[in-house]
Design a protein around this nucleic acid. Structure first.
Lengths: 341, 341
DNA sequence: GGCGGGCAAGAGAGCGCTTTCACGCACCGT
DNA sequence: ACGGTGCGTGAAAGCGCTCTCTTGCCCGCC
């Protein structure tokens, strides 16, 4: 391994400026009082030598890496081929990444994306313990995912993307799922729909079960027809077909994610039924998929980017103040009315 | 800043195993000869103490971070609001991330996603110089992007996602853009289309200009109607409308990206023309968007994941052997025939 | 004029690891 | 029996930085 020319070190800068290493350090970190003349001399030396602090050395002593991990934990589902593909194909994760990045950026904190499935949780744990990152943004939808508990046990600051399973004292950010579903139900009713049904997400995911509950609760009708999809387009399409087979007279449909709604829209239309005239459809998320649908999808908006930014902000606070007590921030969803309902 | 209990250090493991730090190090790195009995003792001690090497300390001495950056450089275009959104919304980048991740993972190398626009190139340069990463996967489409040259000047191993601007001696991976466009042209001709047109990408991007060139070259008709889109869905829709206004009789359309093709499909159909009966449409990429179109899109397949994996492999090779000479790997595109043409 | 106070800068001790070098021991050949 | 060879292990020197502690200095005050 032949080495390219090494970066200048603090010693060289110190020598060039005629000061000690400590002073250079102080200047670099805007710390404490440094005489203006000396500060300038150091800055000049830094500029001349092209000095850039070495992060490994710095974080060895500060025990800070100035980066956080975005761990995306996808449960292994039998119908997955590649969880990587699944993750990077779902627009949701892109929005999360964008939101978190923009909140972290002003603090000069970097994001390391760590996708994982159940099979390699131990790898993730090892990664975290190695000190690569100062904290974790944990996106985990599955209620039985052991990762949140494992991360919490590590004692490393973490913020979850939804209510943690069990009584884990961890900060999290979530949207009021039930209320979102209720908004959808109310809207369908107000349009005059009377034979409602829903395509819900997997019930082992809070976002799945809570949206279903919220929908049913608002209608005060626990017997409302419901079929479970898997939060994919294809799943939504299949679920809609199943639903229409069993209940051909449906005139209003709440689909628990836009991606599934896109598939459902297709299924409904393939059966020759018009949207929204024959069947009104409401989605959930307000993802980019909602706009790509024909007709554009009426949907429950979840401010994903904002939520991710809030997660990042919470995490930074926990990193700065490890004793800070956990808190949860619940965002209120809003209804975005487009052509589908 | 109160500290959580520190991770055990190598000294503690050494003490527990009754050996020296050096020996623990040798065991951890599978290095050199260690007597089997001692090796076992060390491993036992590691297990007992729950020892995990500290990466900062390690990389301080090895000058290796075991992670690489995926720098996604988006030129600031006037029509962008948020480049982050743009990046994370395009399925292309997700595929790249997935491909790179899967190639890096077996080597225990991590990916740091670094989105950037022209405005903060200097930030990226600083990031790289700080030694955060051992190398860079650079996704930069714009021909005039100065970043590739800057990164190269840094002397840090890098692999580009397309032919570098100018004569930069840097490894890159690309798809044979011209040939892909020719495949599309040939297919449209063979279907009997005679009044062809194309929606091309921005001409300052090689993927934009080369696809246009390839299309024209195959048809041996430099006057073929062409409108420039911006590689977004909306851009494709607008471009298709413009094209149909100017040339209502078009019966075959090559669109330089699936995302644009999706928009174009919509535009064509909104004008009451059937696809493929009235207008055949061929896209480029074979992204997930191609399957979501109605009808599903015939498209030129670019094996993005494989290409990203190859980029990662090349990069690892360059990191291991800094003297390795640059090379380029060109993938051949294939035509995926679906209903749209 | 001497002394204490306060502030600015330097000296130096690590942070946790890798790696060179030296050392000790067993074993071989002569 | 003795030096040479080679292997396995330990000692110790850093890697580049931060930060405490100490020193030096200037100023003001009695």
């Amino acid at each position: 391994m032949i080495s390219r020319p090494r970066q200048p070190t603090m010693d060289q800068v110190a020598a060039a400026a005629g000061v000690s290493r400590a002073t250079v350090s102080r200047v670099m970190n805007n710390a404490a009082s440094v005489a203006p003349a000396i500060r300038e001399a150091v800055q000049r030396a830094v500029a001349e030598t092209g000095y850039v602090p070495n992060v490994a050395a710095r974080s060895l002593v500060t025990r800070r890496s100035n980066s956080v991990a975005l761990v995306i934990s996808e449960p292994d589902r039998p119908d997955d081929h590649s969880f990587l593909n699944r993750i990077f194909t779902d627009p949701y994760f892109g929005r999360v990444t964008a939101g978190a990045t923009s909140a972290l950026r002003p603090h000069d904190v970097h994001l390391v994306v760590v996708p994982t499935d159940v099979a390699d949780h131990h790898q993730v744990v090892r990664y975290l313990r190695q000190g690569h990152v100062d904290g974790v943004l944990l996106i985990s939808s599955n209620e039985h995912d052991p990762l949140p508990a494992q991360v919490h046990a590590l004692g490393i600051p973490a913020v979850l993307s939804s209510r943690p399973p069990g009584p884990l004292p961890v900060s999290y950010v979530d949207v009021d799922q039930r209320r979102g579903a209720a908004l959808a139900a109310a809207h369908l009713l107000s349009r005059g729909c009377r034979r409602l049904a829903t395509i819900n997400g997997p019930l082992d995911i809070p976002a799945g079960s809570e949206r279903l509950d919220g929908f049913r609760a608002h209608l005060a009708d626990p017997g409302i027809p419901a079929v479970t999809g898997n939060f994919t387009r294809a799943g939504g399409e299949a679920a809609a077909h199943a639903l229409l087979d069993a209940h051909p007279a449906i005139d209003g449909l709440f689909v628990a994610s836009d991606l599934m709604a896109e598939g459902a829209l297709r299924a409904v239309q393939d059966r020759g039924r018009r949207v929204p005239q024959d069947v009104a459809v409401v989605g959930f998320d307000d993802s980019s998929a909602a706009l790509e649908c024909r007709p554009p999808l009426t949907t429950v908006r979840q401010p994903v980017e904002e939520m991710a930014a809030e997660m990042a902000a919470l995490l930074l606070a926990h990193i700065d103040t490890p004793t800070r007590s956990p808190r949860s921030v619940i965002f209120q969803p809003t209804l975005v009315i487009r052509a589908s309902a």
